[in-house]
Nucleic acid binder design. Sequence first.
DNA 1: CAAGTGACAATAA
DNA 2: TTTATTGCCACTT
Length: 103
Amino acid sequence: MKKKATETYQFQVLEYVATVPVGKVTTYGQIAKDLFLPTPRLVGKILHSNPDNSKYPCHRVVFSDGKLAPAYAFGGAEVQRKKLLAEGVTFKKNRVDLNSCLF
DNA sequence: CAAGTGACAATAA
DNA sequence: TTTATTGCCACTT
């Protein structure tokens, strides 16, 4: 696969998400911070424009509060919660325990 | 080429 | 604790 010289944040974010190990979750702000994105909104846009949501574990990306995303691709926040729980992510009531699962 | 849009986050009340 | 509002910039059309 050939990469264009125009390295958009898109690819970086996708790769970052792919780097997140199972049983861990990351927040949009965390990604933005690590990838030096100007704003966390871009992460959401990028993931929304994700070329292949099945290839990248976008379900491991949650809000900074530990809340799940409104879900557009993975079938719903409830489904996402169940999926993350199956991966070993600890949940706190309605939020992800970022204290232990934040990558 | 230009304008609109948005899987957010931080702050305020 | 919650909801509400603002700011932010690349991606999509």
